[in-house]
């Protein structure tokens, strides 16, 4: 009796099951949802505020209020600070992955998606891709702000861009981690509350704002090699030179450390997020 069914609706798209066709639709659906998520960012003034004004305030605070009391030997404090601010900004921003997913679950939009003949993976890919693109925008804004307050990257454009790519890649891995948080939370408020205790220690017990040598020695191990810090050090090396990290390590050492962490996090987070998405009822 399965043969008697009329050709599905007006759909001009054949629902063939070939691998190429699946990939085509995965890309197409991801693009649709990425666009949708980015439109939301532009339409929620608070979200735009959160992702730009807050980091600018951090820059001003550390540059002009705390900065005078923090001593960096190899480079000016503003040069030391900005790579840290970049990584902090995208890390805080990745929390929005968890909030966005929790909200979609709560509002029942994901319920609708599950009944559509779309690619299963597009919901998570569309969310993380949108956050990646938003991060590009945020880093451009922060670079301009940095230049205005005296940030002077000195290693050339290519090296600077390599640093930016490293940050974006790291933030992308964090987004997958926060996707898991968002899929585990009963609502978006809880998702937010669950996210910050995870992100705060990583951001502040790190090389982002103060030289590692100023911390007590028992804290230095963690503060130096945790994923957030190695990415900050890698960016600092790439943007203002390896001496600026004050660690005596080379640029490639930190870049490799950061890439290892990022790949490791992605390998762990992606399957967990997909599993969580599949089993969430």
């Amino acid at each position: 009796m399965t043969t008697a069914v009329a050709e599905p609706t007006v759909s001009g798209a054949p629902h063939s099951t070939g691998v190429m066709s699946n990939l085509h639709w995965l890309a197409s659906d991801t693009a649709t949802l990425t666009r949708r998520n980015l439109l939301a960012v532009t339409r929620i003034p608070e979200a735009l505020f959160f992702s730009t004004v807050q980091p600018i305030m951090f820059v001003l605070l550390f540059r002009y209020v705390f900065g005078g009391a923090i001593h960096t030997d190899a480079t000016s404090y503003v040069n030391y600070l900005l790579p840290g601010i970049f990584v902090q900004t995208v890390a805080f921003g990745s929390v929005s992955t968890s909030i966005g997913l929790a909200e979609d679950l709560q509002k029942g939009i994901i319920e609708r998606f599950r009944a559509l003949p779309m690619s299963r993976g597009a919901v998570l890919l569309g969310r993380t891709t949108a956050d990646l693109i938003r991060n590009v925008f945020v880093i451009v804004v922060m670079t301009v702000v940095g230049l205005l307050v005296g940030f002077r990257p000195s290693t050339g454009v290519l090296s600077y861009l390599a640093g930016v790519l490293l940050i974006l890649f790291f933030a992308y891995a964090l987004s997958w981690g926060f996707a898991i948080v968002g899929l585990s939370a009963p609502n978006s408020e809880t998702a937010q509350v669950m996210s910050f205790p995870l992100i705060f220690p990583l951001t502040f017990i790190s090389a982002a704002f103060v030289p590692l040598s100023s911390m007590p020695s028992w804290l230095q191990g963690f503060a130096t090699y945790q994923p957030f810090s190695v990415t900050v050090s890698a960016c600092r090396s790439l943007m203002v030179g390896p001496a600026s990290t004050g660690t005596g390590r080379s640029t490639s050492f930190w870049v490799v450390q950061s890439l290892l962490w990022t790949f490791g996090l992605l390998i762990v987070f992606i399957p967990l997020a997909i599993r969580k998405y599949r089993t969430r009822t």
Partner: peptide, 10 residues
């Protein structure tokens, strides 16, 4: 339109 696109309609 989003729902239409996710339905893979032209």
């Amino acid at each position: 339109q989003m729902v239409g696109n996710l339905n893979h309609l032209p």
